[in-house]
Amino acid sequence: MSAPFSWIRPEPWGVHIVPADCWVDPGKAVDRALVTHGHADHARGGHGETYATPETLAIMALRYRTGLADESGEIPTKAIPVEHGETIRLPGDVDATYIPAGHVLGSAQILLEHAGERVVITGDYKRRPDPTCAPFRVTPCDIFITEATFGLPVFTHPPIEDEIAKLTKALTDNPDKSVLVGAYALGKAQRVIAELRAAGHHDPIYLHGAMEKMCRLYEEHGVQLGELRLVSDHTKDEMRGSIIVAPPSALNDRWSRRLPEPITAMASGWMLVRGRARQRGVELPLVISDHADWNELTRTIDEVDPQEVWITHGREEALLRWCELGQRKARALALVGREDEDD
């Protein structure tokens, strides 16, 4: 019998499940990939087989044509759906179960079981309620591989209601202007819109062209977003007093010159740090994150109570220190290319 957990091996471009010859969230094209969610630092095109939730596969089809036929009618990249709660058997006697992670539509943690050993890979996750996706579930395991994007004790994300209230107040205070919200096109944008609707904001919301398809995909999966319009179809005056949602890269782009006196807002966990907001020229920072904050990270580790914690992408050092202070066994994995993009 081999050493404990030798069947699972962290490599720079992903976690390798050796007996199944299969990778979790690999950063390069592989024959067989298990994908936790659709963000570009976890999902990419070109895998021979992709195992993911139906929602994640839909996102990957949209972004990378995963599971779609090419010109010749062949399907070069096979998509295998795994529902939340479903267990699949991989080669080499490895079982993989997909469990909701609460990060974005379709996001999953992956529980891997082999030879009586249990490993959970969280992908990205949060513990706050989110109307656009299923909530995180605590899953007992031996090794817990957690993200640490906001792994510093300064990060305490405020309740989203407070931030949505800041946004609607800016609109009420400036009826002749507009509020331009920078939000990541997959997940953040739809969550902000859904929370606005839940807070009673039923006016049309204007979208940057890059947002349109993903919003439609969310609606097809049952997330109601209310009336959405495209900026390109409307005049400056029509958009006065409105909320406009665009990818963060468009905030200071020439594109924004067509908007009526936009107040620049940005929905991101990084907005908690004043310097970060100022760097981006954000006037109205909205601390809205799809990742666990420090308290969620530490509470989750306590609740899962694994034998060992492996920490990936983010500020591993501080979480490692926290584990050490609490006499938990922990190590940092150096995975390549895992950064927050514009969370």
Binding site: L152, P153, V154, R274, G275, E317, A318, R321
Partner: peptide, 18 residues
């Protein structure tokens, strides 16, 4: 606050008061 966590946080935020 644990001094290591303080230093890591201070370095990231870049401002003692904040």
């Amino acid at each position: 606050v644990d001094p290591v966590l303080w230093t890591l946080s201070r370095d990231f935020v870049g401002d003692t008061a904040e």
